[in-house]
């Protein structure tokens, strides 16, 4: 009996994996049904649904990048304090001091890559007409995921607190000032008054809500940090679960009828 065999026959191994090694047809089916992670997939699938030239694997790649971002992001959080006093220095030290210096690169390039792959995934889904019935709703879920991916990237852009960061966020959030009705420079804001007092000022408009201040400041850093590390990832994770569930329930990867 080889070593592999011994390990696979041990009580410990068997307590974790509830099935024999997937070496024959029967056990290849069993593994898909009994393993928590694998049961996301069906047991068998049309050949065309797994052809790389059909799906480009772009949804899968996007998901993988989301996982990479989660892991590298958690590691970065160990070293980073979201205050204007520390943020920049922590990022700087990350490269020089810690042995995990490359995490920042992985996290940043992974984020760029995720924006690209999510677009490519949408592109593929459109070009194969996979949004057509019965997959309309999953396309809608996808669009929300796309927006959340962009917001994840956008909120993260501020965190290094360098010139690139605050000015990109300033440019990006200036527009909120002009939200119709709710921005203090937007059309219709003068309509919202209470007893002659303007409700929408630069201390209460949409931009203020976004930034937590009248300009990109300490409060903004905190707000974006919480959004970036907690709120948006949780929303993405929830929607991803729905997205994957619906891929299965809508009949698996699309294909010609």
């Amino acid at each position: 009996m080889g070593l592999g065999q011994t390990i696979r026959n041990s009580q410990l191994w068997k307590s974790i994996f509830r099935h024999p090694a997937p070496l024959d047809r029967r056990n290849r089916i069993v593994v898909m049904l009994t393993n928590f992670f694998l049961h996301l997939h069906p047991v068998s699938i049309k050949k065309q649904g797994i052809a790389l030239s059909y799906t480009w694997c772009m949804g899968g790649v996007t998901f993988f990048l989301f996982l990479v971002e989660t892991v590298t992001g958690v590691l970065l959080m160990f070293y980073y304090r979201p205050t204007t006093e520390w943020a920049y220095r922590d990022i700087q030290n990350l490269a020089d001091v810690t042995s995990l210096g490359i995490m920042r690169e992985l996290h940043r390039w992974g984020a760029h890559a995720m924006v690209i792959t999510v677009w490519l995934h949408m592109y593929r889904v459109f070009l194969t007409g996979s949004y057509k019935p019965p997959r309309e709703f999953n396309w809608v879920v996808g669009v929300i995921l796309l927006v959340l991916t962009l917001l994840l990237s956008f909120t993260g852009y501020l965190l290094p607190w360098d010139q690139l960061a605050i000015w990109a966020i300033t440019v990006g959030s200036n527009m909120a000032r002009a939200t119709p009705l709710l921005g203090h420079e937007g059309p219709g804001q003068q309509l919202l008054t209470l007893g002659g007092v303007d409700l929408i000022t630069n201390m209460s408009d949409a931009r203020y809500v976004l930034l937590g201040a009248r300009e990109v400041a300490n409060e903004t850093l905190n707000r974006f940090y919480v959004l970036h590390c907690i709120a948006i990832p949780l929303a993405v994770a929830t929607l991803l679960a729905i997205h994957f569930w619906r891929v299965r329930k809508d009949g698996g990867i699309s294909g010609p009828l």
């Binding site: 699938i45 050949k47 052809a51 294909g255």
Partner: peptide, 12 residues
Amino acid sequence: EKEDSEKVLVWP
């Protein structure tokens, strides 16, 4: 794509 509608096992 229709030519490939034969089913295969997900593992492997």
